[in-house]
Design a protein around this nucleic acid. Structure first.
Lengths: 227, 227
DNA sequence: ATCGGTTTTCGTACTATGTACGAAATGGGC
DNA sequence: GCCCATTTCGTACATAGTACGAAAACCGAT
């Protein structure tokens, strides 16, 4: 065969690499869920054998660590252009979009305590925008904790919504609301029927509302000094 | 032996029950991490055999679902006394305290989409406080999404802190900060040295600051009408 | 082309896990 | 003491992660 990539081997398959292992793992997790990401299924997906993977990663846990970092690398690094508020707004949306694509990453976050390179770069860029905008170190820590708590928490709630998938909300929620109608959960029933099940309601729309509240508050921090 | 509990059997062990299975599972998860919660280890902890457990639960996934609900049941139900703000403040702290005791529950949340009874009761009570305080249905949904996003997200960040355990923060973070000092992460270095590593700094203290911001904003929603 | 060392791939096998499928043990009313 | 429902559990299988070392592929020097 003529100009075959240097990264191929005598057999048909492209040569393995750490990057290929990780990107295949990411795709597999997205497609079948993190629970279906096994060394064997990963090997299958790559057309290789389980033990070959271990030449590129120490163990599965290292794959999971790296996946989280890979997910972070998909988040657009915030910049100063347009002002800090615009930068933080766009970053928030980027984080949420990424975590929606890879919801399993949220669950992974809880157990992974050593940030990877992309994660560090991401934090560095975000801190930079805040500091250069005039937030003191102290206010920056307050602002960052507040923003990220909100963003991660929102993503977590979205992931845990009783209705995930593209079915109309009403269909999936119907039986659940049935349970409410016996009067045991009047407020849940109310908010379900009068709001969540109304045509056009989309939990995702709540994101901007809360985000605005937070950004508005931060705005006040720059001129005045509550920290 | 004389007055032995009715819930015991000829052999020494207390009789099994769904409750005992679940509370043992909770303890085991707290003590050894959710990863060490296996049917066999659970059976060991209860002095029984693996397959006996399956008389009380359908499968392990049902245990995990129930554990999440059990965790929710530990959260103090909010009440109206002292006003909605006080109720929401105390609820927020109760949720955080519970999730700190059972950090593994945060990771579980992402994958569990059918709320249990305690979870429903908790939501019901919280919605009630907000509605009775005068928040419209719409504003209540905004407020609840905002509050819970913040609380869960904060708990998630706490769980993912590179430093967990009682060691002095500085000790654990030293090598990490070393990595920053080469100038690649100036802002991370700055915030680490000037803030996070300062004696007395405690990430948990950030909780009240963000919570106050949110509650202050909600306060404005009752009199005026941004929803 | 050949050879020798390096890198990469992978076969085998062991341990841990969830749990299906009955069988055995237990308990409680008659 | 007997019978049936409940509870406990032994055995066994499929699926995981991965240790260990052998085989294969690769590559530069001759």
């Amino acid at each position: 065969m003529s100009a075959e990539s240097a990264r191929s081997t005598t057999r048909g398959r492209a040569r393995l690499s750490r990057e290929r292992v990780l990107s295949s793992a990411l795709i597999l997790a997205d497609e079948s869920g993190i629970g279906s990401l096994t060394i064997r299924s990963l090997a299958d997906a790559m057309g290789t054998r389980p033990m070959s993977i271990y030449h590129y990663v120490a163990n599965k846990d290292e794959i999971l660590d790296s996946l989280v970092d890979l997910v972070f690398s998909e988040i657009d690094l915030p910049s100063d252009v347009g002002g800090w508020r615009s930068g933080m707004y766009r970053r928030a949306h980027s984080v949420r979009a990424v975590l929606r694509r890879h919801t399993w990453a949220i669950g992974l976050l809880e157990s992974r305590t050593s940030p990877g390179g992309a994660t560090l770069r991401h934090h560095e860029a975000t801190l930079g925008v805040l500091r250069r905008a005039g937030f003191s170190v102290k206010l920056t820590s307050h602002a960052y904790a507040l923003l990220d708590s909100y963003i991660y928490g929102f993503a977590l709630q979205e992931a845990a919504l009783p209705l995930n998938g593209s079915e109309p909300v009403a269909q999936v929620a119907e039986p659940m609301v049935q349970q409410f109608s016996d009067g045991r959960y009047p407020y849940l029933y109310e908010i379900a029927t009068e709001r969540v099940l109304q045509p056009g309601y989309n939990f995702g729309d709540e994101f901007d509302i809360g985000l605005k509240v937070i950004l508005d508050s931060l705005e006040g921090w720059i001129s005045h000094r509550p920290g």
